[in-house]
């Protein structure tokens, strides 16, 4: 698979403290990249650097084989993102917000707006000002906006915040659909291992600004198998030991 985004020694120093240090990330085209880490680990900072909101102190970001600079505006056309929490022009309606987004992105397709609102199940409220939306609805609208322009890379920072279990399940299916059917690449961050585990193809674990590991989900599964194999010279003795001497827990 082609590499869509790569960072080299990406470092960000805030007030003399390294909030991200030497992150080398590789995201392949079409995969769902789960970005896992506790709060304050630097997930958002990395995402901000990728979306060109924050300038890295050191290191570089390569997007579609091109180096990103503070003037790389064209690249931003190929990304859709929600960073931290979705922000809107509160006084405008959901529909107006999406229209505005399309205009700024240079994407004019009226049908796309209706489609994404349908997809995110918010078509009933398109004439309501966003300030009356609940957090979950804003989150849905935010994802609708990010997806609307059919970006090649979708960057979602904690997308399941504020959603109910049903909503989370729907999102999970949506992400898989976007990845499989549209061939979109997704970068999803979360601090909940269980969530990431269910959707990601590759997982990057970050803690205190350091990318600890970057592995394919499959290799994690094979690394931690769900059974233990014992090799023994005497089967009956082993059975005895297992039955009598280990804790009587039946798995």
């Amino acid at each position: 698979m082609a590499i869509i985004l790569r960072t080299r020694n990406l470092t960000k120093v805030y007030r003399g403290k390294k909030s991200v240090s030497s992150v080398n990330m590789t995201i392949r085209q079409g995969e769902i990249y789960g970005f896992l880490g506790p709060n304050g680990a630097g997930k958002t900072t990395v995402m901000k650097m990728i979306t060109n909101l924050v300038k890295p102190t050191e290191g570089e970001i390569e997007f579609f084989g091109e180096n990103m600079t503070s003037r790389s505006y064209e690249m931003l056309k190929r990304m859709g993102s929600i960073i931290e929490y979705p922000v809107f022009y509160d006084r405008l309606t959901a529909r107006e917000n999406l229209l505005l987004h399309g205009e700024y992105m240079g994407y004019y397709n009226q049908q796309a707006i209706a489609d994404v609102m349908e997809l995110m199940k918010i078509s009933g409220v398109d004439k309501k000002p966003v300030k009356e939306f609940s957090l979950g609805m804003k989150q849905r609208l935010g994802i609708a906006r990010a997806v609307m322009t059919k970006p090649e890379l979708l960057i979602l920072d904690e997308p399941i915040n504020g959603l109910d279990p049903v909503g989370i399940k729907e999102l999970r299916e949506l992400f898989q659909m976007l990845s499989r059917e549209y061939g979109m690449t997704l970068l999803i961050s979360s601090h909940i291992l269980g969530e990431i585990e269910q959707i990601a193809d590759t997982i990057g674990v970050i803690r205190e600004g350091v990318l600890l590991e970057e592995v394919a989900m499959e290799s994690i599964r094979s690394r931690n198998p769900e059974y233990i194999e014992l090799v023994t010279s005497s089967v009956s003795k082993a059975v005895y030991v297992l039955e009598e001497k280990t804790a009587p827990v039946q798995f």
Partner: peptide, 14 residues
């Protein structure tokens, strides 16, 4: 204040 500027800055416009 509303942070919408971060949204504006993710657009492909100088």
């Amino acid at each position: 204040k509303n942070n919408t500027i971060t949204l504006l800055f993710t657009y492909p416009i100088s």
